[in-house]
């Protein structure tokens, strides 16, 4: 850095400008730029790495188990031995879908309702109290939601309603995921609602609409791209959520535990795709077995599902965004 310590000399006695550091500066400027570019490449390398590793390891798995048998097979028993070992991923996918649907039923309407309340109805003071509380929900680690599902939702909330419900069940996990995803929906939807210009609301009121009519028929439609994007993000998080299902949803895939009536039975153990990965790693498993490679097949499917949800979310945001001046 150039530092100026003395007062500038008079023009006639000023030495010619010393530019000898210019070359060095140019070189270090270039070096800095290269280092920064290298940093930014880490994020790209992460994506490439994830896709390459999942594909490479999954292909090794598909050499043992044909892709179609994996995708359409209806029995998932990778840790069994011999002829009883089967790699049909449908029960795991059903587990993921069923818990995510429960989560969506909880988080989407509640989250949107809370967003409308915070953005359209609550006073500034009410909002300043309620919003931080919801943000606390967003900061709770997911393992805590898993604990909550196992030790409170199932025995205290669900047992009285559904007497035969298992200790581990898909329903409690789904509810806990729903609670976890709720702040995502609320805060993103609220941002979208608040971005709608005030003039639209005033126009609604001027036409004689009530508060509710203005909120639901003017403001919500204007913010629909942000709201749908928040829904999709919440569903994507529900699909990828691991710790809640690892703790509360049980280790038998949907339809494969003793008392289960089938893939749809939320009251019994319902292992999801993420739950399978977590469970398999917490039990020691041979690194050369087909079961180990199946982890990457499941991982690839999981990645593809959440990636599609994200692309969809971006597309919705772009396609349906309303622009206001």
């Amino acid at each position: 850095m150039v530092s100026m310590t003395t007062t500038p000399p008079r023009p006639e006695e000023r030495a010619p400008l010393d530019l000898s550091g210019k070359k060095k500066r140019q070189a270090s400027e270039r070096l800095v730029k290269y280092v920064l570019v290298a940093c930014s490449l880490v994020t790209v390398a992460t994506t490439v790495g994830i896709i390459a590793i999942l594909l490479y390891e999954a292909l090794r798995f598909f050499r043992d188990i044909p892709f179609w048998n994996f995708l359409a097979g209806s029995t998932w028993t990778p840790l069994f031995s011999g002829s009883q070992q089967e790699f049909g991923v449908v029960p795991l996918v059903m587990g993921t879908l069923m818990t995510s649907v429960v989560a969506a039923i909880i988080s989407l309407p509640l989250g949107l309702g809370a967003a409308i309340y915070l953005s359209e109805i609550a006073s500034e003071r009410g909002r300043s109290v309620l919003k931080p509380i919801l943000e606390v929900l967003a900061g709770v680690p997911t393992i805590v939601y898993g604990f909550f599902a196992l030790t409170f939702i199932t025995p205290v909330l669900l047992q009285p309603l559904i007497p035969g419900i298992g200790t581990f069940n898909g329903l409690s996990a789904g509810i806990a995921i729903g609670i976890m995803a709720l702040p995502t929906v609320t805060s993103l939807s609220e941002d979208a609602l608040r971005a709608v210009p005030r003039s639209l609301r005033e126009a609604g009121f001027a036409l004689g609409a009530t508060k509710f009519e203005t909120s639901v028929r003017v403001v919500v439609p204007a913010a629909v791209s942000g709201i749908v994007a928040s829904f999709l993000l919440a569903i994507s998080r529900a699909i990828g959520e691991t710790m809640i299902v690892a703790v509360a949803a049980g280790q038998a895939p949907a339809g494969q535990s003793g008392g289960s009536d089938g893939w749809w039975d939320l009251t019994e153990s319902m292992q999801t795709m993420t739950g399978f990965i977590a469970y398999t790693f917490s039990s020691d498993i041979s690194r050369e077995s087909t079961a180990f490679h199946s982890l990457f097949g499941v991982g690839l499917l999981l990645f593809a599902m959440t990636y599609l949800m994200n692309l969809l979310s971006q597309w919705v945001t772009k396609r349906y965004q309303e622009e206001y001046e």
Binding site: G49, I53, G240, E241, T274, F303, Q314
Partner: peptide, 25 residues
């Protein structure tokens, strides 16, 4: 633009997938 899209896409990847990346790499 690609780096930016990539960053927002990565934000949606389930954390357990990062675990698989970490295990192999």
């Amino acid at each position: 633009a690609f780096i930016q899209t990539n960053i927002s896409n990565l934000a949606g990847v389930p954390s357990i997938v990062y675990g698989l990346l970490g295990l192999v790499v």
